[in-house]
Nucleic acid binder design. Structure first.
Lengths: 143, 143
DNA sequence: GTAATAATGATATGCATTATCATTAATATG
DNA sequence: CATATTAATGATAATGCATATCATTATTAC
């Protein structure tokens, strides 16, 4: 059950930082872990709100940020649109193909490209930490 | 003199769209063409303001957008930071190495990576149009 | 020169994100 | 268990940037 491990990452971070476990935090975390990929703060807020209307937007936002800090989640921003969050733990690094028409995200990974990137950085005497590759175009439905 | 050609691209677009040439447009264009790379609206506004304090922020913003539309300039957004604009015409496609410490942009290009990207897209039945590759890390000064 | 209308400049609006702050609640300690 | 400490919450305000609005000005076609 990977979500148990995922939870451990989060609670480990909480403990490490001297933060506290709260009912809201647990609810928001569970909702995030059982949600679909690429969720926005608003999306998650709306899901949480159904069963827990007392939980505020700011709390959802704060906890998504905290999940990113813990390494559990990752924030994705494309252009000006709102930030989306995806589960990072147990989820290999990948890049995105983004449809210019329907906005679909397709996740891809290519070991060769990754290696070439490192090589490229090295040539410029640059120490790479992370990267972001987005390929925009049209998916098979929108061609 | 490449800037003459660059100007032609812009004025061609103006003509094509039935737009008009104005004094402000000319001033903003000239300022952009002689500016450094990766300039923000605010930067350009401040440059223009020195000699032409009557020109407004909105006009600079609108004209930068128009330059992008014409293909002369390109908008670059990294994360949440403000949009930057760079000259696109006469300037090969390239990606960026971005220093996490000092924010420097290093321009890079690798034909192999470009090709692999196309291949990758093809495998997913995706028609690529453009892409954006950003490698974050530390430059030689900030290592 | 005149009419049509695009562009300008000042400012308002929109919108997502983040900050503020009084109140509530979680944890540690005696 | 009671209490103190202080993090977290929830409502809302503030922020920051991009863009829209609108009265006025200026450009282009005729």
């Amino acid at each position: 059950m990977p979500s148990v491990e995922a939870k451990d990452i989060f609670s480990g971070h909480i403990k490490e930082k001297g933060l506290r476990n709260t009912r809201q935090r647990e609810i928001i975390l569970d909702a995030f872990l059982s949600s679909k990929k690429h969720i926005t703060v608003e999306d998650l807020f709306n899901i949480v709100k159904k069963k827990h209307p007392e939980i505020g937007y700011a709390t959802v936002h704060r906890n998504l940020k905290l999940m990113c800090e813990s390494g559990l989640a990752e924030e994705i921003k494309i252009g000006t649109s709102k930030a989306k969050y995806e589960l990072k733990y147990g989820h290999e690094h990948h890049d995105h193909l983004i449809c210019l028409n329907c906005g679909t995200f397709i996740e891809v990974n290519d070991e060769k490209i990754e290696k070439l990137q490192d090589k490229l950085a090295e040539q410029k005497d640059f120490q790479p930490v992370r990267h972001k590759l987005e390929i925009f175009g049209f998916c098979n439905k929108c061609r």
